[in-house]
Design a protein around this nucleic acid. Sequence first.
DNA 1: TTGAAAGCGTTACCAC
DNA 2: GTGGTAACGCTTTCAA
Lengths: 344, 344
Amino acid sequence: MASAPEDPVPRTPRIRDVAARAGVGVGTVSRVLNDAPGVASATRDRVRAVMQELGYQPSSTARNLSLGRTLTIGVIAPFFTSPSVVERLRGIDDVFGHSPYDLTLYNIETPAQRRAALRRFGRRDRVDGLIVISLPLTPGELRSLGRDGLPAVLIDVANAPLPHVGIDDVGGGAMATRHLLDAGHRDIAFVGDVEENPFGFASSERRLEGFRAALEEAGVPLPAAYVRRGPFGRATAGRLTRQLLALRRRPTAIFAASDVQAFGVLDAAARAGLTVPDDLSVIGFDDIEVAEAIGLTTVRQPLRESGRAGATLLLQSLNGGPPDSPPPLPDLTVVRRRTVARPA
Amino acid sequence: MASAPEDPVPRTPRIRDVAARAGVGVGTVSRVLNDAPGVASATRDRVRAVMQELGYQPSSTARNLSLGRTLTIGVIAPFFTSPSVVERLRGIDDVFGHSPYDLTLYNIETPAQRRAALRRFGRRDRVDGLIVISLPLTPGELRSLGRDGLPAVLIDVANAPLPHVGIDDVGGGAMATRHLLDAGHRDIAFVGDVEENPFGFASSERRLEGFRAALEEAGVPLPAAYVRRGPFGRATAGRLTRQLLALRRRPTAIFAASDVQAFGVLDAAARAGLTVPDDLSVIGFDDIEVAEAIGLTTVRQPLRESGRAGATLLLQSLNGGPPDSPPPLPDLTVVRRRTVARPA
DNA sequence: TTGAAAGCGTTACCAC
DNA sequence: GTGGTAACGCTTTCAA
């Protein structure tokens, strides 16, 4: 039998449908919805039953508008599929995965995306909080964040008056360098990121700073040609390494500013017919998951923990907590594997 | 000089502030905002100037409520940091990264999270569309999606009346098996996922099906003990492999249902003092990025492309397009590297 | 070309 | 305890 014309068109029910059907006001339904006190338990049950019957689900958009919050956290990260970022994301999810907050990801691969993301997120009403990974903010960006009072935390960045979590890149760079020095190397080169890049990555430069300092402290000279920088990536690192290996006085060891770049160094060494670590020692930075499989000696930094720490910090300020100091991260350590040996 | 008491408290401007200041109605401002026709260009310019001056940014929540859309896409995936999922996410971002849509990620690691995610997202007003990766939906879940008419696409799942993109896992399993057969192996074992798991992964079983078929076709017997299944993961795969290697008649080759599991097989082989591929051949499935570094022979499936295809499909239906057939994916291929050889 | 006003679906305040 | 109603900030229709 076809439905009679007076049948109401079935549409997703609103709060007032529930109210009408239960014979109460919308206010009461809202109270039931939010487990607010001041509703007779008989009424509460009746309303609940109607909700069930109608399959009612509140509109989160409307709730957001009314409450002025969105229950979502924005995460801005460059190249979110790169291993180190994925690890940090995992840490963030450790914290927010069980919270009522959703995570909206914003991947940055071009300066235009960066601007778009900060414009879109830099507004209190789209997200309740912001986590920025490895992207130093400009003064202007900071200002616009501050204006809306958007809670934000920075991971792997320290250039700001915002709470942040990071590691001692300078110390880590020195640590890697000393490991090479201790193995007896004196001709040590560096492969890292370009100084000025559209994203403003800075960790490579800080690690280089530690590298220089450790060398100087040990009284080991550093030829200018031993410092090679290029756009982040495995392939680029390989190219830079080829230049290094073509030098008259070839380095016996290379410090790469990241594991991904270290893999590029390894590629180039293999292509040049060099055996690692006999002919060339290599040390990386990060200790991403693959590093173990490859046997890469590297400086381990607590990636996942950094995500967790940043997320925890944000959650605190979301809960109106005081700007707590960031929870301490595990120390950097050199993980000895199979790519560093004494020079021939 | 302190600001006079009559100074308005600086708060983020609303549309009516712009309207008041520009001496127009909010309707006009809205029209300017949306580049709608019917505004004198002088008025338009004036309004634009005021927006600039006030640093006005429209509230997306309010706009969403009014328009009945959210400009966000929900992505539900198990273990979103696992390499194959990350690759698919990358494909999804290829498509949506330049669209006005935001991507909200929902990571599923427990059955409770699964329920929570589908409840939260299975509602038209939280997201405009849904992408589900590697998670077969129950009839009930499908029904609730259908009711709200939420556009959804499935990746790596094919159990539903919803548009989906996937590969021929059965064929891929057979392909891997034939590669081993062609190398001369006759004692071939399988390491994969448990049949019944809380997430309902099914690709492992389908690959096993292809495995069985290829063996049967070649007239090669398959001892029951040669099929080992356990919870997904590298460590588990290692344990299963140890059991396999302890068998009286040890297999000379192992087909792992995924690369991650193949790494577990490799781990176990190394621990047992076996050389790969001399003592044991291993083939995986997926061809995740690490596979190349490790030299793992494997079946390549187009992971990133699958994400792109799924996202494209969703974008089409979001734009009110017809339920187009999914764009064709590249074929599966066996990538020969260093873990398969003739049996001793 | 423009302004006023009625939605969009909640929450929260104020009476009763 | 409960119902009515004014926000929340925008879009869109209807008149002028």
